[in-house]
Design a protein around this nucleic acid. Structure first.
Length: 725
RNA sequence: GGGCGGUUAGCUCAGUUGGUAGAGCACACCCCUCACACGGGUGGGGUCACAGGUUCAAGUCCUGUACCGCCCACCA
């Protein structure tokens, strides 16, 4: 028996070494033959370090890929990182500001990008190391980055083809402007906060016939209409009439329109319509051919009007307007209310809706050759079951989101990211590649990071080239990710893949929940309750962390983790270590037969291992393990990793150790040599099988023990055959 | 306002197609027995939120109620 077994199991002495051996062996890459099984790693943001949520995802993915690899698939798990445009730029800008007191405009575009480039390179190196520490058996030879040359080329092509298909357009539309980040953001990057506010009831002028209610009186200088409900008898006589007024020094022209979007029961039942600074008002203006041009707030969230409001911040302007209303006797009511404020997720800035010239993806227009809109193409594969979402109820959430989906604004006014591939010269514009002639200027905006990561399932496989990988591995099989990016990412991947390849990006979507701390609180920087996966691995080992993350972690459900749970599984690792020690000791003592492999006989013919005497197949112990094998296999096939992990744990500790080993002691200590040998062989076979079943979950310790077995059926447990019954 | 979850042992959670309630931790008592004290043995503890219904049988299916949570949504 190996000397190492005399000491308690120490993951620190084994994990790094084993990972290196695996990686060197080349078995992380899919083998040449066999049915393909592919999974893309959700690329972590290149903004620093991995958190415990990443560890959960990586563990689940690694369990799946290891299982499939052992089942004989050409298993591809492709790793990568995401440039995470806004998040990354914001982080680097913040650091520069803190250290040097400089802003991005002090540095200039080129210098800032250089600095971000350095930061991202470091971040990526850290992340790659962390992924290894967790034992992730991904194919590093195919590693991708959302902003490397191949991915840039894919995104350019995608942009060009979508433009040619008429699905990308540039237009002045109302967008979510983040004055703090000085950029547009998508609907999904907004978080709503409930804050106390005031609801003012006012008139534009003394002789104006209708009072309106608003929480933002300062925007009223941008009003072009008052909308009332068509059925509202109170105001019917005014519909169609037009009025002029001077509101707080600003001349305004107001038309009364009837629109069903107005709730007659709210406020006065009349809404001041500010098309340039409100989504719903923009739509009302559309329906009544009203002007969108009256812009009264600029990108710095200051008033873009003349008079006393000139250049005032919106909150200052509000006070001025209210004073003016009071002085003029136009304020009829002032009530306390709660209002939902839209804020930018990344910067916390209060969103100011503004019309701006932006690039959009049209989700309602028919895709040429498909006879359907992108929205429909996103909907159908999920509805038909071609794409399966686990847990199933997220399909409803997905449909609900799609129903409310608007055109996707894909341009961002930040510098880090892939620049919009459009070049202008005077009135001319060229999409795709920079023209050879001189005088062309590229669009200054960059693309939403999800435009690039939306192409992840195929840009990673070499698209637009018709590569072997693309042919073999797309559509991919499983996408494992957190439910919090179902809309951001999963939906966009379906859109992109349907457009670019006219096929689904993946067959199964497995959504894991959010990891919370022991008190059930979300992990956050401000709470300081982060559990650093690498630190934890250093303390308890990757195997223990993986088990703690996976056991009982049902898809779509949030889960809690604390050190006690992880410690429990590090004890389990030690338990397994001692089980191995005992069995190897006993088999060495009594001696068990190892059948020599003969030419022409494959390892599989030594079912289930070279030391397995066929007569043991009928024993109660072996049959019990066969049942477990069947169960675990079925659980993994049906994505119940959380159940499978627990079952094996329970088997190893409470069946194999507590019962079988204890029952074996008298037999092994008796005089009957044949009985002793037979029992030792049985234990040896049980151990071998248990190691295989446990390997996807606890890859390091199982591999380490496997390497000490007197007879192995493969070079590494990682590529040994999964027992199939 | 719309949608989606959750409510099972003191705590954290499982419970796959309906068939007499499970795990881990914690707790109580015993044991340093020659694989392991990072251990072993024994044991206590639940009217499965509530109210109806379907069924021979419901934690599991249906209806409703309460509480907790999440997501979406600019009643201005």
């Amino acid at each position: 028996m190996d000397e190492k077994f005399t000491k308690p199991y120490d993951p620190r002495a084994t994990e790094a070494r084993i990972y290196t051996e695996w990686e060197k062996s080349g078995h992380f890459a899919p083998k040449k033959d066999g049915e393909p099984f592919a999974m893309m790693m959700p690329p972590p943001n290149a903004t620093g370090v991995l958190h415990i949520g990443h560890a959960l995802g990586l563990t689940l993915e690694d369990i799946l890929i290891r299982y499939k690899r052992m089942r004989g698939y050409a298993a591809l798990w492709l790793p990568g990182t995401d440039h995470a445009a806004i998040a990354t730029q914001a982080k680097v800008e913040k650091e520069i500001n803190k250290k040097e007191g400089k802003h991005r405009h002090d540095l200039g575009r080129e210098e800032l990008l250089k600095r971000i480039g350095v930061f991202v390179k470091e971040s990526r190196a850290i992340i790659e190391k962390q992924i290894r520490v967790l034992g992730a058996s991904c194919d590093w030879s195919r590693e991708a980055f959302t902003l490397d040359a191949a991915r840039r080329s894919a995104v350019n092509t995608l942009f060009k083809r979508m433009s040619e298909a008429g699905l990308i357009y540039r237009g002045s539309r109302i967008i979510n402007w983040d004055p703090r980040g000085q950029t547009t953001i998508s609907d999904d990057e907004i978080v709503h906060e409930e804050r106390p506010g005031k609801l003012y009831t006012l008139r534009y002028a003394k002789d104006f016939p209708i009072a309106i209610a608003t929480t933002r009186p300062e925007t009223k200088v941008g009003d072009v209409a008052v909308a009332v409900h068509p059925e509202d008898a109170r105001y019917r006589e005014f519909v169609g009439k037009e009025y002029d007024a001077v509101f707080c020094d600003v001349p305004i022209h107001i038309k009364i329109v009837a629109d069903a979007a107005v709730d007659p029961a709210f406020g006065t039942g009349a809404v001041g319509v500010t098309p340039a600074h409100s989504y719903t008002d923009w739509e009302i203006a559309d329906r009544h051919q009203l002007s969108h041009e009256v812009v009264v707030i600029n990108e710095l969230a200051k008033m873009a009007v003349s008079g006393r409001l000139k250049e005032k911040k919106t909150n200052e302007a509000r006070e001025i307007v209210v004073e003016w209303l009071k002085a003029e006797g136009l304020l009829e009511k002032e009530e306390e209310t709660l209002q939902n404020i839209a804020t930018a997720e990344r910067t916390g800035g209060v969103i100011e809706p503004l019309p701006k010239l932006q690039w959009f993806v049209d989700v309602n227009k028919e895709v040429p050759g498909r006879g359907k809109s992108l929205k429909q193409l996103m909907l159908e594969p999920v509805r038909s079951g071609q794409i399966r979402i686990i847990p199933e109820h997220f399909e409803k959430t997905y449909f609900h989101w799609l129903e409310n989906l608007r055109d996707w604004c894909i341009s961002r006014q930040i510098w880090y990211g892939q620049q919009v591939p459009v070049w202008y010269k005077g009135e001319e514009a060229v999409v795709g590649e920079e023209p050879a002639s001189e005088g062309w200027v590229q669009d200054e905006d960059t693309l939403d990071t999800w435009f690039s990561s939306g192409a992840w399932t195929f840009s990673t496989l070499g698209w637009p080239e018709a590569t072997e990988d693309l042919k073999k591995f797309h559509p991919t099989d499983v996408l494992e990710t957190g439910y919090d990016i179902l809309f951001f990412w999963v939906a966009r991947m379906i859109l992109m893949s349907e457009f670019a390849l006219a096929e689904i990006p993946f067959r199964t979507v497995y959504l894991h929940g959010i990891i919370r701390d022991a008190e059930g609180r979300k992990i956050s920087k401000s709470l300081g309750n982060n559990i650093d996966p690498v630190e934890t691995v250093g303390k308890f080992g990757a195997d223990a962390l993986r088990m703690a993350l996976v056991v009982g972690n049902t898809p779509g459900m949030d889960s809690r983790i604390d050190e006690e749970k992880i410690r429990g599984y590090s004890r389990f690792a030690n338990k397994l270590w001692n089980i191995a020690r005992f069995i190897l000791e006993q088999s060495a003592q009594v001696g068990i037969r190892i059948r020599e492999s003969a030419p022409g006989r494959s390892a599989e013919s030594y079912y289930p291992s070279p030391t397995f005497p066929p007569e043991l197949a009928g024993t109660r112990e072996w049959k019990g393990l066969e049942v477990l094998t069947k169960d675990v296999t079925k659980d993994l096939d049906e994505f119940r990793m959380y159940v499978a992990a627990e079952k094996i744990y329970h088997y190893v500790w409470h069946e194999l150790a507590d019962k079988i080993l204890e029952e074996s002691k008298p037999i092994l200590n008796a005089a009957d040599q044949a009985a002793r040998q037979s029992r030792a062989a049985l234990l040896r076979a049980l151990l071998g099988r248990a190691l295989k079943l446990l390997h996807p979950f606890m890859p390091f310790i199982t591999e380490e023990i496997y390497q000490s077995l007197p007879a192995k059926d493969a070079e590494f447990l990682m590529i040994a055959n999964w027992p199939v019954i």
